[in-house]
């Protein structure tokens, strides 16, 4: 029962972006297209899952004074693995995500979950938490990217979804567009929560 609860809380109730407002740097930077959002989301989810598992396993043997450096070492290792594997087998995605792959290290969601959840719960719960949070993160990124890509480029996942006469609203895929879209979606989220 609690397993299901931990799994689904990341989607709406504790959504990492719209409710916890964590990890905004990659959220704003890579959501220019849906494919980037999915790539970033899955990379971060993978790192989150692995680091949550390891950290909940080593929580007994880590002295609390050095827990933060140890978490960072664990997270950074997985990020580097993702970076190298992606460069080798998914070069196009690696090119478009660029600098933001190494920056997963400092994504607050991952360290935040390690500190707030994995270091206090067992492996099974930590897996549920990681998957839930990762899915919430990925879905939120995809939602933002959907608006930005359709408005700013007239495409969705690279496919043309608007009539050819549509003149893309460039601001949507520029930096200000990220803030405006995020703001409107957050307002929408709050409205839904208030109605409940």
């Amino acid at each position: 029962m609690t397993f299901i609860k931990e799994l689904t809380k990341g989607l709406i109730k504790d959504n990492p972006i719209f409710v916890l407002v964590l990890g905004l740097c990659p959220t704003l930077a890579v959501t220019t297209s849906v494919i980037n959002a999915l790539g970033m989301g899955s990379a971060a989810t993978f790192v989150l899952l692995c680091s949550n598992i390891i950290i909940s396993m080593i929580k007994g043997i880590t002295p609390s004074k050095i827990r933060i450096p140890v978490y960072i070492v664990v997270i950074a290792s997985f990020v580097t693995i993702v970076d190298m594997v992606m460069a080798a087998y998914l070069p196009d995605l690696h090119k478009s995500l660029g600098l933001f792959i190494p920056l997963i290290v400092v994504n607050c969601i991952i360290l935040g979950r390690a500190e707030a959840f994995a270091s206090k719960n067992n492996v099974i719960m930590s897996i549920a938490d990681a998957i839930g949070m990762g899915l919430g993160f990925t879905l939120s990124l995809t939602l933002i990217a959907t608006f930005r890509e359709i408005l700013g480029a007239g495409t969705w996942l690279g496919m043309r979804v608007t009539p050819m006469s549509y003149d893309p609203m460039l601001i949507a895929i520029l930096a200000p567009g990220a803030f405006i879209t995020l703001g409107f979606l957050m307002a929408l989220m709050n409205m839904i929560k208030e109605k409940k």
Partner: peptide, 10 residues
């Protein structure tokens, strides 16, 4: 400013 960033050509 919004129009300028969105449709610089127009």
């Amino acid at each position: 400013a919004f129009l300028m960033a969105s449709w610089p050509t127009h």
